[in-house]
């Protein structure tokens, strides 16, 4: 794990998931798994968030919602797709209303496969996302000519 200089906050959005992955994401926040020990805090406000955690695929109705949430987050930001549904559509790939995985509309940085993705895998994904975030922050600062 890369050295983390800030506490990244996470925004969870349920795309069109079956809930299986959602409750595992919530299970990550509770005592047994507890992502807060990495300084990751769950927030409900996209304007405070650094990591966007999406479960479930994209459909016609939630596409604008996901895009809007992403655009409301400040730079630098990381997208983490949790569950095989969010990665490429999973079992629902052939459904008429599913466009596909999250990468159809947003640039995804970390993929967490599994159906349902296990909390251990989700935590691993979040930790990887934290590392990606750190890199992006450095790059972002360099572009703006600030000291890293």
């Amino acid at each position: 794990m890369a050295k983390v200089s800030k506490s990244p906050w996470m925004l969870h959005y349920d795309g069109s998931s079956c809930n299986g992955c959602d409750i595992e994401v919530l299970a990550c926040l509770t005592p047994v798994y507890d992502v807060e020990r990495f300084g990751v805090l769950n927030t409900g406000n996209p304007k405070h968030a650094d990591i966007l955690l999406i479960t479930g695929g994209i459909n016609t109705q939630n596409k604008p919602v996901v895009e809007q949430l992403y655009s409301q987050m400040p730079e630098p930001k990381v997208v983490c797709a949790v569950g095989i549904c969010a990665c490429n559509g999973g079992v629902f790939k052939d459904c008429y209303n599913i466009i596909g995985g999250v990468d159809k509309v947003l640039p995804v940085d970390v993929y967490v496969p599994g159906c349902a993705a296990r909390p251990n895998a989700i935590i691993d994904g979040v930790v990887k996302a934290v590392a990606v975030l750190e890199e992006k922050r450095k790059k972002y600062k360099k572009e703006r000519g600030e000291k890293a």
Partner: peptide
Amino acid sequence: YVHRGLEQLAEKRDFNDYLYVIER
């Protein structure tokens, strides 16, 4: 927002495989 249309998937998956869809 969560509509996937999984009832219709019964036309594309056979009745044994469909069990795994309906569980989801």
